Structures are given as C-alpha cells and as structure tokens.
Simulated scan of single mutants.
Amino acid sequence: MNQESFYRYLMTQRNPNSADEIEQFANNAFLDSAFPKQSTDFEEISQYLEESADYLPSMTIFDAAWRRYLDAMN
C-alpha cells in the first residue's frame, strides 16, 4: 500500500487565518524544517513532537490529527 505521509496529509489542513488547533499545528509543522516529512509511523512522529516541537501545546492535538489522517487514508 502506498500510503501518503502524515506530513503530506497535515499540509492539506493548513489555514493561516484559523484558530482551529489542528490547522495551527499544520501551519507550525510547515515551518518546522526538521519534521519527519516522509513518516507514516505514529511512534516516530509522536516521539519527534514530544522531544522537539515546542509549537504543539498538547499531544491531544496530534492524536486528533492522527485520527483524521487514518480516516482519510481508509
């Protein structure tokens, strides 16, 4: 299965004029040059965000975005 990376999916959620948490996460991830852009692995992305992404105020935002990603891939 050729699955789209989480980052690629997340970029479809960008909206610079929105207060939506997932859209803000997407905006910030776009500016993060070290984001694991090719990954489809929850653990890898989760670990990266926990250790390196000071722009994500809560991991529950990532969890919600991941659920949307999985829904979009199915």
Rank of each mutant, 00 (worst) to 15 (best):
Y55R: 02
A26W: 04
F30I: 13
D32N: 14
E43A: 15
P36W: 00
E23G: 10
M11D: 11
F42P: 09
N28L: 14
S46N: 12
N15I: 01
Q38R: 11
P36G: 02
L31K: 06
E50Y: 12
L31E: 10
P36D: 06
E44V: 11
N17F: 13
Q24K: 11
Q47V: 02
S46M: 03
Y48G: 05
D32H: 02
N28E: 03
E44G: 14
F35M: 02
E44M: 09
E23F: 09
F30Q: 14
D32S: 08
K37H: 06
N15Y: 07
I45W: 00
L10K: 04
L10F: 12
P16D: 13
A34R: 12
S33G: 10
S33Q: 11
S18I: 05
L56G: 07
E43H: 15
F35P: 01
Y55K: 00
P16G: 09
E44K: 14
S52A: 09
A29M: 04
N15V: 03
Y48H: 03
L49E: 06
N27R: 05
E43G: 14
Q24M: 15
F35I: 00
L56T: 00
L49K: 08
D20M: 11
D41I: 01
F42I: 09
D54R: 10
F25P: 00
E50W: 12
S46D: 10
F42Q: 07
Y48A: 04
T12R: 14
P16I: 06
T40H: 11
S39R: 05
Q38M: 07
F25A: 06
S46H: 07
S46P: 03
T12I: 12
A34Q: 08
L49P: 00
A34E: 15
L10A: 03
S52F: 03
S46F: 03
N17P: 12
